[in-house]
Design a protein around this nucleic acid. Structure first.
Length: 878
RNA sequence: GGGCGGUUAGCUCAGUUGGUUAGAGCACCACGUUGACAUCGUGGGGGUCGUUGGUUCGAGUCCAAUAUCGCCCACCA
């Protein structure tokens, strides 16, 4: 095609798919083990298969692809491993909800196997959609290596890891208070719980003292927001030394008051007065109770006929309530801690469906709500109810079922974190893993420093089933007999079976995966596999090495691991990043990556996070359809600064007239919206009714990608102009000692921008990189150099030199832009290759067939002339 | 309660170690289409840099206080 026939718009719709196909065909994304090259590896943060990707993913993956493409051009063997995450509870909940909505059945109607099958079908559908989205964005992943956190390779890694941790005694069975969803009948994690303030009451209840001595109170008063839990009380606590505690608080508050600002002072002063008031009125009573506690006095627990001890424990705060607190170890996290400390019995009063069990006595079978009403009435009748305050209560609800959470004592598997967490702290503190921006390292270290054991079991069906088999024994004699059996098995299958006896009568066996014969044998001995599955983060934690074939010492693992950088968003620094570091260290002895970049989050026009449920999410494909993938990528890159989240007002694009209709809090959840401009109605993602669905659906986009789209077009036309003026171009070295000012200036700028770009991308300063190349392309190359070149190309003497400078500059500009805008640069590259393959002044060699495989430009330090750049700036501003 | 971040033009954001007249994109106003590009060009309007105080010859930038918005963590008998 001759240059004149090139259209004046880049047809990204037609060209992008075609170019991507060429890259795939040529294996441009495939990384091979190559001892002559240094590897550069990134593993994708595997998107959840719960749904399609949104703009946040588009940002995340664009930033990774830029690194991969840059390093590929720089001569590294660049590997980007793609994949998806099974996302445990989230995916199962989505599928279960659909079952309920569309077929009105629950998972129990289907059964485990059938449900899991349904979820696999869902996974196949969304994985395909997700991978397709990544391809449309231009992501240059090595698709041959695509993994899924629940596939066989990852399962092998999970089982090997679990087995190893078990053998190291880093996995144990323990009781733990979990957030129990009584509707779904599963524990849910803290992140799956939301809090809502509801109106409630604060009931003050009298617990009679058993045979009070003279001068002693007849009752101890406790206060609670959940009176029904008294059925599970096993103690009442009072502070062991209330006088000292109040003193301490008083000193502390006095100090704070002295340093307090005018604004805070009154509140602190008030607290101080309250403490002093308590000292006067309540302290003697509390001291007496503390004495009674050490004497081992008992209280009568109303409605149960039980007596419980009055105990001394620091958990009871003398400055709060009555100074006494009821202890319900099986239904309150703090009370649980007290229960452990004080060796109190733990009485679980609930069934898994949330109704009271046999420990509820006459209240058995009632829901907690019904029991509460009845208990309060009964207490009142017995004159044990002291006073009732109205109070707002922050009540935990399950994200999934929207029902109230009951704290519930359940058996759980834990990973002991002490040693593992320390290794991950050390890795960051001694810079083996560098986190950018550096401020995020603090949260990482703080979280790990708590070294809280990791509860890894989930009462789900979708996930890696825990590779532990348990057998209960009637007596320790039976146990001893089986121990022998196990020991024998261990000898027979050396290194593949490890047994722990949790107590005298329960034995747990963990098997290394992949031996069906052994599993059969163990099960024939009466061992039953744990039905729980592992927390989804367990398999994600292995991602950087499991994707490369660990536990096999594969060549790929040896070559590509540790990976170079991990690019992710800040909300999973602890959940995911920290755990990858500690698991990587445990399994391979090496950190999983040397750098972590935490990128901003994309918010909507109101500063709210985008989500499907709010209706403010944006499908990257909508943006790609309207503006092109390059515009999407450049636009996101342009916005990626170190400190700020990205606020992005969102519009519906009217399918009738293409006008952009602002998305507002009012219209974003409507099934149909009327266009401001043409007045016609269109449907949205919420359309369900037939007449709504019949309307044309509006894509959701943001006009903030216009700048980037225009930039693509500018680049396209600059290239077009250049090509139109290269007809009689002859490649040759330009004589740098005899150049016009504007030529020297452009070459200087080119090398400066090259340096800036390379440094900025390597430091994850994406916005700086985008701005540098945008300014260079638009202002320097187009507005200045091309305009000056026009008259110079009419002169015979200067024409050849200008052509060579132009060809070279465009060539280098395309390369510099390629990591950010891969499609348009590849399209231009191929057009110009067909006409003038030799452009690069440094080599004077024909350009590579694809720009994706071209060398990253090397700055020419001798070309950089700060003085000329400044002079020229003055010259053009005149 | 602890930690982190933001506050600069109508909107969304830059502003490096303090240094002339605080920038960009979008939006707005005027003019321009035989021009590589109207997804463009030329010109223009618009900012007491949240507030107060301090350091300095000089503060958007450094320090202190304060207001306000947002995020994370902990806690809430």
């Amino acid at each position: 095609m001759s240059a004149e026939n090139i259209p004046n718009r880049f047809d990204y719709v037609a060209r992008s798919g075609q170019i991507y196909g060429q890259w795939l065909e040529e294996g441009c994304f495939d990384a091979e083990i190559n001892p002559d090259k240094k590897p550069f590896t990134i593993v994708i943060p595997p998107p959840n298969v719960t749904g399609a990707l949104h703009l946040g993913h588009a940002l995340n993956n664009t930033l990774q692809d830029i690194q991969i493409r840059l390093h590929r051009m720089m001569g590294y063997e660049a590997l980007w491993i793609p994949g998806t995450d099974h996302a445990g509870i989230a995916t199962q909940a989505v599928v279960e909800r659909r079952l309920k909505e569309q077929e009105n059945i629950t998972r129990h109607d289907l059964g485990r196997e059938a449900l899991v099958q349904r979820i696999w079908a869902w996974k196949d559908q969304y994985e395909k959609r997700i991978l397709d989205q990544l391809k449309r964005m231009g992501c240059s992943c090595d698709w041959r290596r695509t993994r899924f956190t629940l596939d066989d390779q990852c399962a092998t890694a999970v089982q090997a890891t679990f087995f190893d941790l078990f053998r190291q005694d880093l996995i144990y069975r323990g009781k733990r208070l979990v957030n129990w969803d009584t509707f779904l009948q599963t524990a849910v994690s803290d992140d799956e719980v939301f809090h809502e303030t509801v109106k409630g009451h604060f009931w003050h209840i009298r617990y009679p003292v058993v045979s009070p001595k003279a001068g002693e109170p007849k009752f101890v008063i406790i206060a609670t927001t959940r009176p029904e839990t008294l059925l599970g009380d096993t103690a009442v606590a009072v502070h062991p030394d209330p006088a000292a505690e109040l003193d301490r608080l008083q000193v502390q508050l006095t100090e704070r008051l002295a340093n307090a600002s005018e604004k805070d002072a009154p509140a602190i002063g008030q607290q101080l007065e309250q403490i002093q008031e308590r000292r006067r009125t309540m302290l003697p009573g509390l001291i007496q109770l503390a004495k009674m506690a050490t004497d081992g006095r008992m209280l009568e627990l109303p409605l149960t006929g039980r007596t419980i001890p009055l105990i001394a424990d620091v958990w009871a705060k003398p400055e709060m309530g009555s100074g006494c607190v009821k202890i319900t170890p099986a239904h309150d996290p703090n009370d649980y801690e007290v229960g452990l400390r004080q060796s109190l019995p733990m009485i679980n009063i609930l069934n898994t469906d949330g109704r009271l069990n046999e420990h509820g006595g006459s209240y058995q079978g009632l829901s907690t709500q019904a029991a509460r009403t009845k208990i309060v009435a009964d207490l009142e009748a017995m004159e044990l109810l002291d006073q009732v305050e109205d109070r707002e209560i922050d009540l935990a609800h399950s994200d999934r079922s929207k029902t109230a959470i009951e704290p519930f004592l359940a058996d759980q598997w834990f990973v002991r974190m002490d040693k593992l967490a320390q290794s991950a702290i050390d890795a960051v503190e001694n810079d083996q893993v560098k986190i950018f921006p550096t401020r995020y390292a603090k949260g990482y270290v703080d979280w790990l420093s708590e070294k809280r054991d990791w509860p890894v079991g989930r009462q789900l069906w979708w996930g890696h089933q825990i590779p532990i088999w348990t057998q209960e024994y009637a007596s320790s004699k039976d146990l001893a007999a089986s121990f022998k059996l196990i020991n024998r098995l261990e000898g027979e299958y050396a290194g593949e079976i490890v047994a722990n006896a949790e107590s005298e009568t329960i034995l747990h066996v963990s098997l290394r995966g992949g031996n069906e014969e052994l599993v059969t044998k163990i099960e024939s001995l009466g061992f039953v596999r744990q039905s729980d599955v592992l927390d989804t983060w367990f398999s994600s934690a292995l991602w950087p090495h499991s994707t490369l074939g660990w536990p096999e010492q594969t060549d790929a693992l040896n070559y590509f691991y540790p990976t170079n950088t991990l690019i992710t968003s800040r909300d999973i620094i602890t959940l995911w990043v920290a755990r990858m570091v500690l698991m990587g260290l445990n399994n391979t002895g090496q950190v999983p990556f040397s750098e972590v970049f935490i990128h901003p989050k994309i918010l909507d026009g109101y500063g709210e996070t985008m989500s499907k449920s709010k209706g403010n999410g944006v499908d990257p494909l909508d943006v790609i359809d309207k503006f092109g993938a390059d515009a999407l990528r450049f636009g996101l890159c342009w916005l990626t600064t170190e400190t700020q989240d990205v606020r992005m007002p969102v519009q519906f694009e009217c399918p009738h007239c293409e006008a952009l209709v602002n998305q507002t809090k009012q219209n974003r959840q409507l099934p149909r919206v009327k266009c401001d401009k043409c007045g016609k109605e269109f449907s949205t993602q919420w359309a369900e009714k037939a007449d709504d669905k019949a309307l044309a659906k509006a894509p959701v986009v943001s006009e903030r990608f216009e700048t980037a789209r225009n930039f693509c077009n500018k680049l396209w036309n600059a290239a077009r102009f250049t090509m139109m003026n290269l007809e009689d171009y002859t490649p040759a070295k330009i004589d740098r000692t005899n150049l016009a000012l504007e030529d020297r200036w452009l070459l200087s700028r080119l090398s400066s921008v090259n340096q800036t770009m390379t440094a900025a991308i390597k430091k994850y300063q994406y916005a700086d990189a985008a701005r540098a190349i945008y300014d260079f392309a638009w202002d320097d190359f187009c507005s200045n150099y091309l305009e000056i070149a026009k008259p110079r190309m009419q002169e015979e003497q200067s024409r050849p030199v200008v052509q060579r400078v132009l060809a070279h500059a465009l060539d280098q500009l395309l390369r510099l832009l390629h990591p950010i805008m891969p499609f348009v640069t590849e399209a231009i590259w191929q057009e110009i290759n067909a006409l003038h393959p030799v452009r690069d002044q440094q080599t004077l060699q024909p350009a590579s067939k694809f720009i994706i495989k071209a060398d990253w430009p090397t700055p020419v330090p001798s070309d950089v002339d700060v003085e000329i750049e400044q002079q020229f700036l003055l010259f053009t501003s005149l």
